[in-house]
């Protein structure tokens, strides 16, 4: 079993990683780079806590080999705020009372980020559809959905409309 050298672009920074081929992006983020904001749970793409952005798309980092990610743009929860003005979502999650245990929240915010990029002022049904791949066991989703709707309204009228 040989190790391979990977150059990964994560949150705008280049990270050189030497790792085994079978290791996932989630493994590398959490264990090698200490980026534990991306969470670990089911490891089968069913819960969404490990969601990151890959070239702007929400993906489950547990089902992606790190080796598949070379040359692509990876953004984690740690990098979301660095995208500029994007703590609108984080703020909305706090203001709407959407955070309980919080373990699903980074994945939720990543999914919502990708979604709002494409749908700046969504309907509730669209938000629910967009977050269906992120399980939450604490909130019943209601305040999470409200937070994404609120962030959509805020960013849709202020920053997001022009920025993207």
């Amino acid at each position: 079993m040989s190790r391979i050298a990977l150059a990964l672009t994560i949150n705008g920074q280049r990270h050189d990683v030497l790792t085994e081929a079978h290791r996932t992006l989630l493994d590398v983020l959490r264990a090698d780079l200490g980026l534990t904001g991306t969470k670990e749970n089911c490891l089968e793409g069913e819960c969404g806590v490990c969601t990151v952005l890959l070239d702007g798309m929400a993906v489950d980092s547990c089902l992606l080999l790190a080796a598949q990610c070379q040359g692509r743009e990876i953004v984690t929860i740690e990098g979301v705020s660095s995208r500029g003005g994007d703590d609108v979502l984080a703020r909305a999650f706090i203001d709407c009372g959407a955070v309980q245990c919080g373990y699903c929240i980074p994945g939720m915010i990543i999914s919502a980020t990708a979604f709002l990029d494409e749908h700046p002022s969504p309907s509730e049904a669209e938000v629910r559809e967009a977050l269906a791949g992120n399980l939450c066991r604490c909130t019943g989703y209601q305040k999470i959905v409200d937070a994404v709707l609120a962030a959509g309204r805020t960013s849709g009228t202020e920053t997001r409309g022009d920025a993207r």
């Binding site: 793409g45 929400a58 489950d60 999914s111 992120n134």
Partner: peptide, 9 residues
Amino acid sequence: VGGHQIRNV
């Protein structure tokens, strides 16, 4: 098929 995360890949 799955969630967005799965369908994107």
